[in-house]
Amino acid sequence: MIKFLLKRVLEFIPVLLIISFIVFSLVFVAGNPVALMLPEDASQEDIERLTVALGLDQPFIVQYGKYMLDLVQGDFGKSFRYNTDALPLVLERLPATLELAAASMIIAIIIAIPLGVWSATRKNSSLDLLATGGAVIGKAMPNFWLGIMLILLFSVTLGWFPVSGRGTIAHLILPAITLGTGVAAEMTRLIRSSMVEILSQDYVRTAKSKGLRNFFVVYKHAFRNSLIPVVTITALQTSTLVGGALITETVFSWPGLGQLLIQAVNTRDMAIVQASVFTIAILVIFMNLLADVVYRILDPRIKYS
């Protein structure tokens, strides 16, 4: 297992290199941020002086080389806006995002497991159709729309939850529901189709022929098997979750990474953009690694090689 993990971690190095290249290229293409950094009445001379000072007049390769050199030291450069190092700013926002992601994942799991299993065991019943239809709607609802609707209903009209911000559990509930709904919908669909297939397997029939209660047949023998594809696909969708988090955080003024990133993009605070994208990339990679580990724990047939 340790060998396997080590191997996987080493495999990340080229992935991170590619990501760094892409991120840097995008920023390079996005153009000179100097104009935005200076007051509006700055002279052309001022702009040029700052450009040279920041090394932004150098050719692409030189800039990239310098950037990479800094990067391996964990230095993403200074934020223009906050005038401090970018990475600590990003890491400071990370817990809020992780909190939101974890809460929405918990909500998704609580909804998706029983619903998915339950509609698979009652395949084609009207309740199954209702659940499946609900999942389609849940998936189709855009995060910003759902977020705004929830705020209007529960915060503005009913006053049950705060409109925005972070702090108490009450602050967390609406954003977590907003972000969790789409994930729950997708997971329900996955668990259902996986369970439908597993329930027709020979070993499920064997379990029934032993006289086991239906609950054990479904949750011991079938469900664990059905989780194998679910875990893999859910991990692959971490990036979708991140995308949803960007929007949800903005809607609810949730002080997380997403909010910081969107602000940074708007103000072309490129150091922060780069540090955030990099952090998110590492998160996604980490989730995939985690899925791989879970997958291996679930399925004894897989050898570490």
Partner: peptide, 15 residues
């Protein structure tokens, strides 16, 4: 009690 045709798939792979 019952025994089935497919011994390869009649046992649960995860237990």
């Amino acid at each position: 009690a019952m025994i089935f045709q497919e011994p390869l798939s009649s046992l649960n792979p995860l237990f």
